[in-house]
Every structure is written in C-alpha cells, then in structure tokens.
C-alpha cells in the first residue's frame, strides 16, 4: 500500500482577507512545499495583505491556512510564529531603538535552539552583521536594516519564511546579494521561502514556482521554467 503523502508545508484554501469592511484577498488557493515560492503582482494587488494574513496579523474572513497540515486559521500571530512562520515585512521590519544584537536576540526568544547557535548561523549568512551587533538598528543603512530584519526572522528558526518585497528600495549591489542569500537560506537551511516581488525578472531568478496576484485573485501557479512573457501578461490581466 502506498504511503500517504505528507501535507504541504503551507496550504491556503479559499482565503479571503482585508482591512475592516474592505476586502482585499478574494479567494486564494495555493500550496507551498519545500521551495522558493514567489508571489508577483503590481502595486495594490494584495501581496502585502497576503503575507500579513499568512503571518496572522490580519483576520481571515473566509477560507483556511494550514501549516504542515495543521489548521492555523484561528491562531494569533504569536502562536503561528511558534509553529514556524517567520515574517519580514517590507517596512518597519526592525526595532530601531534596540541594538542589532537585541533585535536578533528578541527573535531568538522562542524555540529551544540556544541563542549563541542562532546568532552564529545568522552571522554565517550575514557576516557584515557580526561587527555591528552593538550599533543601534535605527542607525543602519537600508541594506543593513534588511539584513537585521531577515536575521531576526531566522533567529526564530522558522520552517517558512515570509519575505515582503525583500529588496524594495535597495541598491543594485544589495539586490543581487539578497537574492543570493535567499537562495542560500533555502538550500542551506531547508527553509521554505514565500516572497512577494514586483520585479518578475528578479523573482524568476530565484523562485522555483510563481503565482501572480491581481486585484486579490491568484493566477495558476507556474514553475519558473515554464513562465513566458505571454503567460505573465495573461496572469497580470494586462
């Protein structure tokens, strides 16, 4: 008899969400396994809303979110974080009044991994942070802040990392570095990555599969290798 297949790491069914009476996500269905999964879309498509909803910072008005087969739809953000979701918002992703060390150590407060081990792993991924641990995070450059935000989420030892436009506003040097780091985090640590991105070319360089979000609705999920300009145009409803 065949073994029953393991449930997807992250599964979204008929997801509706929004802000108060304003619906933004209007029924999304997709499943993510151990991969880099990119969500593309223009401004206002609902990408940030989707990630904030997956992190359980916005209410689900209908549908469900399952993490490793476990229904977390009704869980508060603090519990989903403990179940393995790490979240890096596009803006306000660090605590500016705390030092780099304190930002990272706050991330390491959950889980059973020793703090030193978590820090060492973050410094392996982002060596530039090693010399900046004593600096106030609010005094760092944009690229360094993004490293701290990403490191803070990695300190949680997540199984799924949600990255909301991780390279928005960064210089080309940092953009290249960041996408390289994202690939490393996935391949080296086995962390499933769900990222949003406006720039399809950049996302396709790192993603295994992509989905296009348009006005709160999702396209079919495509493998990165199968994506063509025509399919993207159709998905973007251009």
């Amino acid at each position: 008899m065949a073994e029953p297949s393991a449930p997807p790491i992250l599964e979204v069914d008929g997801l509706h969400s929004g802000y108060g009476d304003v619906p933004v996500l209007k029924g999304l269905d997709f499943a993510v396994d151990s991969e880099v999964f990119a969500i593309l879309g223009a401004n206002g498509a609902g990408k940030t809303t989707l990630l904030a909803t997956l992190a359980r910072l916005l209410p689900v008005t209908d549908g469900s979110i399952r993490l490793g087969g476990k229904d977390v739809t009704a869980h508060p953000a603090s519990e989903t974080a403990r179940l393995g979701i790490g979240y890096v918002p596009q803006e306000a992703a660090i605590f500016p009044d705390l030092t780099v060390f304190e930002n990272l150590s706050i991330g390491g407060m959950i889980g059973e991994r020793p703090l030193e081990q978590g820090l060492e792993e973050v410094f392996e991924t982002f060596p530039d942070l090693r010399d900046k641990v004593g600096l106030r995070a609010g005094d760092l450059s944009g690229g360094e802040s993004r490293m701290v935000a990403c490191g803070r989420a990695l300190m949680q030892d997540p199984s799924v990392l949600l990255l909301d436009e991780p390279t928005a506003g960064l210089s080309p040097l940092y953009v290249e570095l960041f996408f390289q780091k994202i690939a490393e985090i996935h391949s080296g640590r086995g962390v499933t990555i769900v990222l949003t991105e406006q720039n399809a070319t950049l996302a396709l360089g790192v993603a295994d599969r992509v989905m296009v979000l348009s006005l709160g609705l999702g396209s079919e999920v495509m493998t990165a290798a199968d994506v063509t300009t025509d399919r993207l145009k159709e998905a973007y409803k251009l």
């Binding site: 603090s78 974080a81 605590f95 706050i106």
Partner: peptide, 20 residues
Amino acid sequence: RLLIAIGSNEPLARSMGKHT
C-alpha cells in the same frame, strides 16, 4: 527589550511569537 519592541512596533513583536 520586549517592552521597547512593543512600543516600537507591536504587530512585528507579535509576529515574532511574543504575547504582547
């Protein structure tokens, strides 16, 4: 540190598993 984090950005602190 948690109190400073809450004062600075409570949703972010909550998304990190903290009972803010």
